[in-house]
């Protein structure tokens, strides 16, 4: 039973979506649009599972004092601060006790983790946690400079939420992306050292295309470099892309069909 029903669901919905493609009728279109929306909605519930996993792994590292456990604290701090920013917003210009609130929430979570970790003296940490929880609750009740929002999207305008995005997420994101430039250099070096026919072919065609876009070297070779590079991009490239795309298409179609018919169950743990 536990395996049969999921397989039935896969078969029914898979077949429906296949036949839907051939049915232009209104009803079929409506059901199709519905199903696509459903997937997005289920995805959000899955997000809760994901956050739980992230939290548990980080806490486990701290508790077991695994190597580099200290850094996991920053993960937790980042996670919870951003979550608080995402559900609160200042009411006016001032911040009131907002940052004290954020700090006490973070500290109380820290104390909780600590209380779970230590072998003796749990009472002390639990007590401290209680103190911080009380401080947070009191500020939450009596401070009017900011409020919680669960129903309307004011927190998306919260300056702290935006600043964290602009000054924490963006720089790391952009820099990680720019690391690609260095990595591509080391990858190119690796390709240079490779000593077989296939790697040489790859390298030669890469060089031709790179030289064509190099403002200093391209003029030396004149028109030929541009022509060869264009030919490479338009002719063999097109052929290979087409062969790969057809192969991939067949692979996707075959795998999808096997999944729908229940022949391939690897995704359920049964290959």
């Amino acid at each position: 039973m536990k395996r049969q029903i999921p397989l039935m669901l896969v078969l029914v919905f898979g077949m429906f979506l296949i036949f839907q493609y051939f049915i232009p009728h209104e009803t079929s279109e409506e059901v199709y649009e519905f199903l696509l929306d459903w997937i997005t909605i289920i995805g959000i519930f899955a997000m809760a599972l994901a956050i739980w996993s992230l939290f548990r792994v980080a806490v486990a590292k701290v508790r077991t004092r695994k190597e580099n456990w200290g850094y996991s604290i920053f993960t937790l701090v980042g996670l919870f601060s951003m979550m608080i920013f995402g559900w609160t917003a200042p009411n006016g210009e001032g911040w009131g006790w907002y940052f004290v609130f954020v700090l006490s929430v973070l500290l109380s979570i820290g104390m909780l983790v600590q209380a779970m970790t230590v072998k003796s003296g749990r009472g002390l940490w639990a007590g401290l946690m209680l103190v911080f929880v009380i401080i947070a609750v009191l500020i939450g009740i009596f401070d009017n400079a900011w409020s919680f929002y669960f129903m309307s999207a004011e927190p998306l305008e919260n300056p702290m939420f935006r600043s964290f995005f602009d000054f924490v997420l963006m720089p790391i994101l952009a820099t990680t992306f720019s690391l690609l430039a260095f990595f591509i250099a080391s990858a190119a070096y690796r390709a240079f050292r490779a000593r077989n026919l296939l790697a040489t072919l790859l390298l030669v065609s890469a060089l031709i295309v790179m030289l064509r876009f190099n403002p200093y070297l391209a003029p030396i070779f004149g028109d030929y470099m541009a022509k060869t590079s264009n030919w490479l991009m338009n002719v063999p490239n097109l052929a290979a892309q087409r062969a790969i795309v057809m192969g991939v298409g067949l692979g996707i179609v075959a795998t999808a069909l096997k999944v729908i018919l229940g022949i391939e169950r690897g995704y359920m743990g049964k290959g």
Partner: peptide
């Protein structure tokens, strides 16, 4: 580590508010 925590919470908040 900071990046991981902040980005996960960022996606969760965006998912909650927009979806």
């Amino acid at each position: 580590h900071l990046f991981v925590g902040v980005s996960a919470a960022f996606w969760m908040c965006m998912g909650f508010w927009t979806t």
